[in-house]
Design a binder for these strands. Structure first.
Lengths: 295, 295
DNA sequence: TTCTGCGATACCCGGCAGGTATCACCCCAG
DNA sequence: CTGGGGTGATACCTGCCGGGTATCGCAGAA
């Protein structure tokens, strides 16, 4: 009947993520009792039990999981509405001298592709200004959804193209980055099996959705940190071939024969109506002469 | 900074669609002054001028157009969150005996395809219950976005696949539906030029986004109405070949040689996680042995 | 001119969002 | 067994703000 308020969604998502009313209230900058009450009201209004209060913390019901997922999407969409509106206002109040595009990229990934793209686009007659917004691992999708970015380079299979329009740009293999001093560093090719179970060189673990998979390797959240650990001989990493850009002198890169290839796509929100964006996409696809994948 | 409330979005969308505070307030079931104030607050909070108040009605600024488009998406997303949460709750409170899927279709379009699909799916071992939700012209996209439907049959180029995952199902040509008594009815094929400028038989006009394009032909919003007008010899229509299903006795259908083909896709929201949905899609693609188009 | 229709302003009121204090409960530590 | 700490829920208060009515200011049409 009545429509969900974004405030309620924000509250619920906070609680659902923390699974703890106190911490959630803290994160929201409010006291715990009003938060409890708000969630109760939400449950009553929806006629749905969202949380299993079970004396020791809180758990999501099935419906709660659905609302968490859908609620995030909805919150991102409203945030995007606000952000894009503000940007549109700047554009047409300033007489729209040059449109401004924000491209979201994974820091240090597809670096040379990005460089070539920016160079080629800058050479276009009426190119917009481009701001590069570098982010963490799967953050690019979120940037597109919540309006921080107008367009992004997404790496499949690390990112998902779900919900976006996209064009394929390039495919690359993966390499193992080893300490230069390691015996395997002299090989000309390796398989995943070769490197996945070396006792003295455990595979580094990256965060997936904020949490780390269990395993022996060190937890890294940063290329610099990873690079240093490899240089110190503590770990090995599997990365896209284009990561050669940031290798250090005491790193060795060896191609992997059996790792799934990494495909870079340029992706944008499905209802975009910007000429500058269209031009950028055209430039990108021409640059790589790839085939259309998704419209 | 602060986040948009859905109430504000609802208000703004109403005003932006009506371009009239009084009518918008009426539609929202409230008085006009609070609505004016709410919009002003919204503009101040965003720091953006959304409307050009110009004494004779209201007009959208560029930023306003952006907010209208993005706001609709956001509102649909929150509505979808509420609806899908409620349905999930029903499912897991009832012990999820059989999942229930809602499929959105354009009334009377792809009828035999739908029939074959439902039959084939019902024969699956653990088929969910399927509810068919028939709607108007481009309404299927909205149904997917706001959660009324879990999956839909979309007809390209009438519908857009933007923002959904989809698989191609079938391609068909188009036919001209004429009064059986009309001279052209005896032809075995026609071109668009043949029928687009017949003085006594103007092409019927369908609503696009709620409004009708200008033209001489009658305005129709309903297949029955259209069928009757054709039977009465007042108009001619161009429809997908599968529309033969609903032809009357005094209709004549003639294939068109140069009309763009109509492609039926099965489409679903990008983050769907339902096994029943996956099974339905698999059934559909097997049924038609078409190739994947969009993932 | 006056009349009419539009959005904006002024002012009031009630509800609800948010705060503090406290409770009820369970799990552990001792 | 008992008390303390940590959980979410309840009670109660208060100020803000969303919404209503009455009215204004302004432009265009009669």
């Amino acid at each position: 009947m009545d429509t969900l308020e974004t405030r309620e969604l924000r509250y619920f998502v906070a609680v659902a993520e923390e699974l703890h009313f106190g911490r959630a209230a803290d994160r929201l900058g409010m006291a715990q009792p009003p938060l409890s009450r708000a969630i109760q009201q939400l449950e009553r209004r929806l006629g749905v039990c969202l949380l299993e209060r079970d004396r020791r913390g809180v758990q999501l019901t099935g419906a709660g999981q659905v609302l968490l997922r859908e609620g995030r999407v909805a919150l991102d969409a409203t945030a995007a509405a606000a952000r894009r509106t503000r940007r549109a206002s700047l554009a047409d109040s300033a007489g729209s001298p040059r449109e401004r595009l924000v491209i979201g990229v994974k820091a240090a990934a597809s670096h040379d592709l990005l460089q070539r793209l920016l160079a080629a686009y800058a050479a276009e007659p009426d190119a917009a200004e481009i701001e590069v917004l570098a982010g963490g691992f799967a953050e690019q999708e979120e940037m597109l959804r919540d309006g921080r970015a107008d367009v992004a380079l997404l790496l499949v299979p690390f990112n998902s193209l779900a919900g976006f329009d996209s064009e394929e740009l390039q495919t690359e293999g993966r390499i193992a980055v080893l300490p230069a001093a390691h015996p395997l560093a002299t090989r000309t090719a390796l398989s995943m099996a070769d490197i996945s179970d070396i006792p003295d060189l455990p595979l580094a673990r990256w965060p997936r959705h904020g949490t780390y998979a269990p395993g022996p390797g060190p937890e890294v959240h940063d290329h610099t940190q990873l690079a240093q650990l490899i240089a110190l001989g503590r770990t090995v990493a599997v990365v896209p071939a284009s990561a050669r850009t940031w290798l250090w002198h005491d790193h060795a890169a060896v191609p992997l024969t059996d790792a799934a290839p990494v495909v870079t796509h340029i992706a944008w929100p499905p209802h975009s109506r910007s000429l500058a964006l269209a031009a950028l996409i055209r430039t990108a696809t021409r640059l790589t002469s790839a085939t259309a994948s998704n419209r």
